[in-house]
Structure formats: C-alpha cells, structure tokens
Design a protein around this nucleic acid. Structure first.
Lengths: 142, 142
DNA sequence: CGGGATCCCAAAGGATACTG
DNA sequence: CAGTATCCTTTGGGATCCCG
C-alpha cells in the first residue's frame, strides 16, 4: 500500500536523536519532539487525574479530533508513557492510564503550567507594549 | 537529580491558585504555543549562558537558519523574554540577553531537559518493544 | 553584521467516511 | 465505542535574495 500521506498507522519512523549536553542541546529537543505537539500534554494531564476511556478523553479535551486522540494516545502508548487496556466487550472498551514514566512527565508538565500562570500576564503586557511600539514605528498607511 | 515539579522558585508563594487545573487545560497550551516550536528553547538555553550577539547565537545553535533565528529572537523579544540592545556601529552589533522572565523560563526548561535525560532510555526501550510487537502482529509481506 | 521580504515545500493537524 | 484510512487545509520552517 502506498501511503501518500501521514496517516494514523505509521508512527514507526521517529528517530530519537542524541542529545549532547553541557554545550548546547541538552536533550531538550528530544522532549519537545515528544511533548511539543498540540495534544500530548493535554492528554497526559487528563490522564494524570485517573484512568480514562477513549470517549472520556475526547470529551475532556475540547477541540481534539478523534484522529488526533488516536494518534496521540498511540504515540504515548508506544513510548511507554501510558498503558492501554482493552476489554473485548460489545461495545468495546479501552482504558488508558499513565505509567510511572508518564506520571513523572505529568509532574514536569506541572512546572510548565505553573510558569505559564505566573508569567502569562507579564507576557501579554510586554506583547501589547511591543505591538504598540511597532505600530507607531511603522504606520501601515491609512 | 530530578526536578519533579515547580522548578522555578517563585518570589511569592504560588500554591496553585484557583482550580482551572482540575478540569482541563491549565494554561499549558499557552506555554506550548510559546516554547513548543523548533528553536525557542534552544535560544533560551543558549542565552541562559550569557549575552549573545546574533551571529554567536547562529553559530551556537547548529542547524538554525538565520531567518528562524530572527523570527525566534523577535518573538522572544516581543514577549519580554529577551532584551535586545542595538549598537549602531558599522557593522551593526545587536546583543541579546534574557530578562528575568526569560531566565525563569530557562529554569523550567531545565526541568524538561532533566526529565528527558532520566527517561529517554526507558522510552527508547519501550518504543523498540512496541515496534517489535506491532511488526509481529502485522507482518508486511513475507 | 543583522536583519526583512519572498518563495516554496514538508509536516501537522482537522473533517469526514467506513469498520469491527 | 474505538478505532482506521483518506483527503485537504494550514502552518512551520528552510533557501534565497536584498538592503541599511
């Protein structure tokens, strides 16, 4: 099958680059490649609250498409950050829960959220200020 | 070794205010929109080491294009995370340095890097396991 | 040196339809 | 319910040229 595009099936080729620390990278790229996408951390945060089924996650994370939820959970599962329990009932029931590694990630992500809450006002202010300056510096005409 | 949580040491006690964090987002999206791109944190980490000129940053961060460095630094500047000092000499000289907010972000990012270093092996292993299982579960051709 | 402006491509992600 | 397969739009970001 010639997959023209990135579908849901192949998360197969995602290299884990080497992170030489002490000089530049530190392996930060590695983390960001893992959690820097649009939904991963939200799923992790939600799962940090307890076991969730697919639908529950979908409802708990407003705006996520079911495709992205599938992709994201699969990726987390693959990386050993979540466990996936399938109950072969009808209708099917699948439970997701964080592994120990996943929980540690949730802890770190807390630090991010914390930082965000602390500084988001300052950032918004700085941004507004900057925008004002730029506008007065380069008036667009009319 | 591990900065499991709040790694930034806020000047005033921030005991996780109110509870938007008990329902969904937490404001994590906000952080990720800011640092989730390809270069921002690398620039922040580099600037955490001291004042840098444009060229110095470019050389310190292998792979970055000068356009992305411009975009990234400007974004950080706009958000009040870096200061930008222009020396109107010939040739021009522009210095970048982290603001207090920027430094606090660098601290948080340290937590991420920390987590990455701790768990990257486990993740790589889990991933290899997963891939093996999936391959044996859906043989592509043989 | 330190950018700004443009072009262009690749990847991420949203919408929808189908299945067990 | 819990996915999978496709299609299509949006965005990120690399390459290149030009300018003060």
């Amino acid at each position: 099958m010639s997959a023209t595009n990135t579908a849901v099936s192949p998360p197969v080729a995602t290299p884990i680059p080497e992170g030489p620390c002490g000089d530049d990278d530190c392996g930060i790229r590695d983390v960001l490649d893992r959690i820097g996408d649009k939904w991963t951390v939200l799923v992790v945060v939600e799962l940090a609250k307890g076991v969730r089924r697919f639908r529950e996650l979908e409802r708990a994370i407003p705006g996520i498409s079911q495709r992205m939820l599938t992709v994201t959970t699969k990726r987390l599962w693959r990386d050993g950050l979540v466990e996936r329990t399938v109950h072969p009932t009808i209708p099917p029931q699948v439970e997701y829960r964080l592994t120990a590694t996943g929980r540690s990630l949730a802890g770190v992500v807390e630090g991010l959220a914390d930082w965000s809450r602390e500084h988001k006002d300052a950032i918004a202010t700085a941004r507004a200020h900057w925008d004002a300056e730029q506008e007065s510096a380069s008036p667009t005409g009319t």
